[in-house]
Design a protein around this nucleic acid. Sequence first.
DNA 1: CTATGTAAACAAC
DNA 2: GTTGTTTACATAG
Length: 514
Amino acid sequence: MPHPQSPHRPSSADLTGGFCGVHPSKDTFGAPMPLHPQVPLPSPSPHTSMVASNMATSFDNHKTSKEELTGFMNLTDPNAMQWSAYNGQPFNHMSQDGNSCQYSLQYSPESTEIYSYGQNLLPYNNNYNLTYSAVPSSSCPRTYTNAPDLTGLPTTIQESYPPAAYQIEPQRPHETMDLSDQGINGHLMELREDYDYYSSTIKHEEHSDYSSPYDSDVTRSSTPSGDPPMPPHNFKGEEAAIDKEQPYAQLIYRALMEAPSRTMILRDIYDWFQKNTDKAADKETKGWQNSIRHNLSMNGAFEKVDHPSEEAKKGFMWRLTDEAIREGVKSTTRYRSKLPNKRGHRSHHPQPQRQASGAKGGQAARRAARMRRSTRREDAYRSDPYPMSRSVPDIPMPLSAYSPHSPYFGSGSDTDLDYVPEDFGNPLGGSNMELFNRSYTGTPLSQQSTAVGDSAYIELPMNPADPLFTNSPSPSADEPRTPEEQGQGGWGDEVALAGGSQFVFDVAYGEYAV
DNA sequence: CTATGTAAACAAC
DNA sequence: GTTGTTTACATAG
């Protein structure tokens, strides 16, 4: 077996952890996080009350009073937190775009602990000014369902904190629609947005001004005043040095957070690693680069931007998703097998680009896929000329394409891709879409679901004529299936189990099955 | 079982 | 050769 894994494994250092002595564990990337609203996005883990979730979320986006915050904080479940920026440390460094600076001026120093998170909340390219968050939007007419009866919280609070789904909107860089009076249509629109946002692996945005921060070693300072070239987020003291033993995903995150627009090209990420981590210590091998690429590809926190700069003709730029900026990186693992495509859906219209290339991995993968096909549901498979692609389709997608598996959403708990049969009663389903979970507190139990098997993702046919298992090697035999999954083993099963979204299912059905 | 790291195949560039 | 995608496998917890 060609897997001499040991050589690369740092021993003790690895375990002790260069940072806080905390080895990355299941749910976190290091140190326990302070109980503040930034991250906390609710992580609808089974242990987290929906109330807390909504509250935290609401607060998060509206930044009302500190008192209210603390109140909510008490409701939040620390365990629900996930990896966040810098292990929960406030992310204070100034981004080069200056947005953060602008923002922080708004608040007094004593509120920094709280409001500094606003920096994280700011999308890389937004121009929210100081007025954005201070006012609890009276213009938030949106209703969000049956929250009250479930929360049991004072209505005033409820009213004070409109649905996260709404509040999140401003952070969508491309958001232009008015969400103010939407009923179900509004939610559909949210779905659309969500689709738009998460299905596209290549964002079409303007990054004409990207310049590699690493073109010159001395240009890395994040401020004009010439801060030290080292990580701008100098936490003075124990955190001054980037803990080098963080997982790749987290390190990439940090690298990107330091970059203007949270965007870098691969080469720069390499450089950052060389400068700031010891992953690249071994100059002999390129394994660390492979790992970086692997993480970029697999972790939903990173997205490609299809506007390579002049300097970066090769390859895309990689950017943190807004979601990642807000909530931090999540485990790459969850994107790996649960979603063969981290975007959660595939297209019949593969991108004619690189991304469509190595689509199915190597020969071993191919063999395995062959094996799977031969050993399971032979009739359902066929060879597909278009291997799965992470690319967004070039035609408008049917609603069925709204994969509920936006990998950014969900609890951050292990049982992330939650599904609850009860949610089928919910028009919007119990998908793990954060928007839904937050907006529809009517599905407070949606966390209990079954952690679906790794392969239980949704893959709806884009065309009624398409065979169901086209290029779908994953719902595979090599992955254990839960008893439920094994029940019928049909497509509907998988859809239901994977997404738990009646909405998706119904729509899909409506569109295609009729 | 999950999270992570690594190797590697492969295609497109 | 580089970049990006994917699978497989090892290892630790």
